[in-house]
């Protein structure tokens, strides 16, 4: 009796050359990460008035972006279905 190996992980089939340039993948994550860092430290170091408001705004952007992406996926009929 032959036992077939479990299927490959999803990533193993994609060829490296066909993807987007690395920087395109990281543009959004870097922006959201930078906003988070700014938000965390502007409140910690400023702790007053404008710095607090800036902190609330910049920390809420990653959350808002997430919600917008989810809404797009669930409410807009599938046009954003990836490019394959």
């Amino acid at each position: 009796m032959k036992i077939t190996p479990p299927p490959e992980g999803a990533f193993s089939v994609v060829s490296e050359a066909r993807g987007r340039p690395q920087i395109a993948v990281w543009r959004w994550p870097i922006a959201l990460g930078a906003l988070t860092v700014f938000g965390l430290f502007s409140a910690l170091l400023g702790q007053k008035g404008l710095w607090l408001v800036l902190s609330w705004i910049s920390l809420s952007i990653p959350f808002i972006v997430t919600v917008v992406c989810l809404l797009q996926a669930w409410c807009v009929p599938s046009v954003k279905g990836g490019r394959s």
């Binding site: 490296e16 066909r18 959004w28 992406c69 996926a73 954003k80 279905g81 490019r83």
Partner: peptide
């Protein structure tokens, strides 16, 4: 993430 997202726009959630 960097590898999985190579061919997807940021935030895409494929539902189809």
């Amino acid at each position: 993430y960097g590898r999985f997202m190579k061919r997807l726009p940021f935030g895409a959630v494929r539902r189809d």
